[in-house]
Design a protein around this nucleic acid. Structure first.
Lengths: 135, 135
DNA sequence: TTAGGTGCAAAACCTTTGCACACAG
DNA sequence: CTGTGTGCAAAGGTTTTGCACCTAA
């Protein structure tokens, strides 16, 4: 059985308090800043568990970090993430769900954990930085 | 200007010879196995350049590695990747292109470098491992 | 009590970088 | 020649792991 430790709770709460995705390291820093003497390894372990249980969503940032987010245990949705300010918008992705399943099935794939996340620039950062020069 | 070294060519060729995505490390190993005394750092640098030039596609595997693939400079397509054997199927993603653009626009996002890649189990590995227990 | 969680530090891992040398142009 | 690419090894970053201690049930 899983025990209920204050560390676990702290991680869960910190995750809930976070707007968008956050890295394990950032979350650890945040907790430390709030006075929690929680260890980095514990944060990693807690986040791993949360992700495994479905209580958190995880994805890989383009920089190679794992990002976590408190997630409605309910739906499988996707995200629109600003690569500049980190703003995250949750998007219902019914169409893509259907599409992903169909395509996967067409090729005989199963268990398609479809990673459909869109990194872009939000309206605000678009203004700040001008039209995307990159790419 | 970019110089034309045999190392660069070797990386390009090795990438062309590869079916799906391959990690920098794996590609380096593969090259070594073929007798090329190319250095790991050089492989990373070459792959980085290729990705920057658009001659290669790169994405982050769930395991946190950067994967590269020789890519048609032409279209923006996506991939269906077996998380067990690495088999990669290229998928035309017109629908998703449209969808991604619309959703991004709806939220005021621009420059959406939509990462639409599906990790799953291919038909073969599904048989080998049984129905997906994960998730 | 006792299985499981925690903390610390070391390790493993992928990737980048500094520097001297080699080579393409 | 000259500047860029290369190789090696060391450094950088994130994540995992070993082990002793602690603690929730």
């Amino acid at each position: 059985m899983k025990r209920n430790t204050w560390q676990r709770e702290a991680v869960r709460e910190a995750l809930d308090d976070t707007e968008g995705f956050i890295s394990a390291q950032a979350l650890h820093s945040s907790l430390h800043a709030s006075g929690s003497p929680i260890g980095l390894a514990t944060v990693y372990r807690a986040l791993g568990d949360l992700a495994a249980t479905g209580e958190a969503d995880s994805l890989q940032s383009p920089e190679g970090e794992a990002l976590y987010r408190a997630c409605s245990t309910t739906g499988h949705h996707h995200h629109l993430i600003c690569r500049n300010c980190g703003l995250t918008v949750e998007i219902a992705a019914d169409e893509v769900e259907v599409w992903a399943k169909r395509v996967a099935a067409e090729h005989g794939f199963t268990g398609a954990a479809h990673v459909v996340d869109v990194f872009g620039l939000c309206a605000n950062c678009t203004k700040l930085l001008g039209a995307g020069p990159s790419h």
